[in-house]
Design a protein around this nucleic acid. Sequence first.
RNA 1: GCUCCGGUGGUGUAGUCCGGCCAAUCAUUUCGGCCUUUCGAGCCGAAGACUCGGGUUCGAAUCCCGGCCGGAGCACCA
Length: 488
Amino acid sequence: MEKLGVEVETKKPKVKEVGLQELPGTHENIVLRFAPNPSGPLHIGHSRAAVPNAEYVKRHNGKLILRIEDTDPKRVFEPAYQMIPEDLKWLGIEPDEVIYQSDRFETYYDYARQLIENGAAYMCTCDGGDFKELKDNCKACPCRDNSVEENLELWEKFDTMQAGEAVLRVKTDINHKNPAIRDWVAMRLVDETHPRLGNKYRIYPMMNFSVAVDDHLMGLTHVLRGKDHLANTEKQKYLYDHMGWDVPEYIHYGRLKMEDIALSTSKAKEGIENGTYSGWDDPRLGTLRAIARRGISPKTIYDLIIEIGVKMADSAISWKKIYGLNRNFLEPIANRYFFCENPVKVSVENYSEGKMDIERPLHADHPDRGNRHLAFDGEAYLAQSDIADGIFRLMDAVNVEIDGENIVYHSTSFEDAREVKARIIQWVPVEENVNVKIVMDDASVKTGLGEKALNDLEVGDIVQFERVGFARLDEIKDDEMIFYFAHK
RNA sequence: GCUCCGGUGGUGUAGUCCGGCCAAUCAUUUCGGCCUUUCGAGCCGAAGACUCGGGUUCGAAUCCCGGCCGGAGCACCA
């Protein structure tokens, strides 16, 4: 008995984690960072990195750094400097500090020099191909044996060399079983004009170098990154080792595959430039701003990413899942309205009930929100796709029988409609209505009429068009309202 | 090819480290029913999974070995 008791006690309590696993290592004064390359606005894939960082910081009252990794001028898209913080804000993420790597070149140079002085890095003037040949065969290149003095001399002259003529390499293990790890490049020459630096510098740090220096200097306790950085983590550990720094806790998460939108930032940019897409918020794109425009709640994305967590296995997220979650947010807030696509004006023969003022609640579950009013006096617009032979109930109004071109009054009560199992369809009054366009998720447009109560809406409001789906009001024009379709 | 990493319902997850409380959690999805009124919302209900084969063990989703499948990296990109 006693033995059993001891065994049970040594076991860690199994705490049910909600979504994110507990952070390894310290939970005191944690410092995390989100470090995107400013090549465009944030994509849904970026939220995979941003959200867990922000969530851990929130849970442990830590510090979140937004670090803009703009050390490759070819991959900097200037507007992204503004777009990234905007997109983070939409997600509900406010970094405690924003840092631009392009401000820190002098720092990188200091550490590069230190590394050379320690004999941990060397200037390599080999041809790239030749170096690879040697490296792949576990052979050091001739430059590796140069003295510290020779290296320092080359380092001083680095700035005057031709791009490609030399690089600074960090010594690792030339026999490392993974060739990718062997003596990686820390600094190279770049002649491109940098959007923030102009042509002030020619010596640019490689990502592995600037990231490791910054992660250390900024006191990162944990580094969350995709598993595509696994080899980089190992490379960077050599640098920590050379410098005698403590390594942070590394957490690698798997790839996030998103169905339908395999669109990379560069492809999206190209499509925008050639007119294929209307902009970064084109509904076909997977950018956060496109998703926002369609009425997807940031909370949906945030929660979904938390649910996916930071495990190493890849995951594929589907629109169905996003829509399903988002529906839970939208259902209680979105008021209901009628919309008829490709409206057809119909007159109900033999209708003699006179003018009806029909009231329908803005939301069936929230009567306190009030009612909309729809007038019916024997005529209405119906959606073309709803017109077919049979008995139909114009929702809350009358029941009609359609037979080819003829539309004849059948009855008025809902009970009569039920009795004949009439399908219930929505309609729009002929006197008072508004022109509505709905931009669908494939950028096609549904054109039709909506009820006049839509006039009370403001841009940004999300509604549910009954039997059509949820949509966000994007723009109010003089003679029409433009919605973006979210989902059913 | 080489190096490394994964594999729980259609999808996303919990459980795996420390084997039994797991005939496996929750969400989404699909299907069915309900609803004085969304054939598309809502409500209720149901369906559906441990990659395979060996081994260890009284007992394996969980530990070991092997196969299969999938992914990533192999840049003077990040």
